[in-house]
Design a protein around this nucleic acid. Sequence first.
DNA 1: GACCTATATCTGCATATGCTGATAATCAGA
DNA 2: TCTGATTATCAGCATATGCAGATATAGGTC
Lengths: 159, 159
Amino acid sequence: MRANRDDAGGQDQRHRCSCTSLRKASRRISQLYDVALAPCGLKTTQRAILGELRRSEPATLGQLAAALVMDAGALAHTLKPLERDGYLAIGIDPNDRRARLIRLTPIGQAKLIESDALWEQAQHRFDSLFGAAQSESLRAALTILISGEFAAGFEVSLS
Amino acid sequence: MRANRDDAGGQDQRHRCSCTSLRKASRRISQLYDVALAPCGLKTTQRAILGELRRSEPATLGQLAAALVMDAGALAHTLKPLERDGYLAIGIDPNDRRARLIRLTPIGQAKLIESDALWEQAQHRFDSLFGAAQSESLRAALTILISGEFAAGFEVSLS
DNA sequence: GACCTATATCTGCATATGCTGATAATCAGA
DNA sequence: TCTGATTATCAGCATATGCAGATATAGGTC
C-alpha cells in the first residue's frame, strides 16, 4: 500500500512538467485574451509585436526577436501578415544594409491604440479573477524564466 | 515629474500582459526542454501527448484534447506525425463509431520511457535553478489558470 | 422508420514558431 | 585591398495551434 502510494507519487511527478504546464496555461490564456481582442482583429501575439515596436521603434528583426523571446526566422514569418495588412513597414537600415528597420505605420499605431482598451479589459479580468497579488507574483516569476540568465544557467547545467 | 512617472507607469502596465508573459516563458522554457529532449527525438508537446496517453489509454480525440487544453482539430493535426512514426495507433470506437480510440503502440511506450530520463534531467535542472518551492508554487498557479473554472469565470465577466 | 438535433471528427485555411542551410553585408586582419 | 570570420536575414520545411464549415454517427421524437 505504502509502496503503491510511492509509485503513484512517482507517476504524478511526470504530470508536473513545468514546460507542459506553461504550454497548457499559455494555450488557455491565449484563447481567453484572443477572444477579448477579437473585436479589433489582432491576436495576442500580434498585439505583443506592435506593442514592443511602440516601445522601441525602429527595431531590427534581431532586436525584436530577442525582446519577444522568439526565433528571428519565426518572427520574420509572423511579421508578414502584419506588413501585408499595413500595420508595420520594413525598411533597410542605411547604416548596416544587412539589417532591417521595422516601424509602426500610422495605421498600425491606430490599431494598437484601438486594441489598448480591449487589452485592459482582459487584463483587468485576469487580475480580478486570479487576484492582483497573485497576478503580480506570477508575472514576476515568469519574468525570471524569460530572462536570458535563466536560460544560460539552464544550459550550463548541461555539462 | 510626478506626472511623468505616472505616465511611465501607465506605459509599463502594458508591458505586463499576463498572456504575453506566459507566451514568452512558454517559448523560452519549451526551447530549453526541447534541447534536453532532443536526443530521443521527441518535442515537449509530443512527449506531453504520449504521457497523457500513458495515463488514460485508450482516449478519444476529444478527451485527449481536453486533457491537453488543446483544440480537437489542432490535436488531430498534431497526432499525425506521431501516428506516422508509429508511436500511437488510432482506431474507431466500436461503441460509438464517431469517436476514435487512441493508444500508445509498443514503440511509443518504449520511446516515452526513453524520454523519461531526459525529461527528469530537464525538470531537475529547472527545479534546482528556479528553486524547488518556487517551482512548486508556479505549477500550482498554472494549474489554476489551466482549469476550466478559471476560463469559465473569465468568460462570465464578459457580460 | 423518417427526421431533427447534438456530438465527434475531419479538412482546409491561416497564423505561430523553430531549425537549418543559403545569401548578403560587415569587419578585422594580412 | 583581398580574405576569412562574423552577423543579419531569408527561404524552405516541419510541427503547433486555432477556427469554421463539412461529414458521419447517435439519440430522441412523431
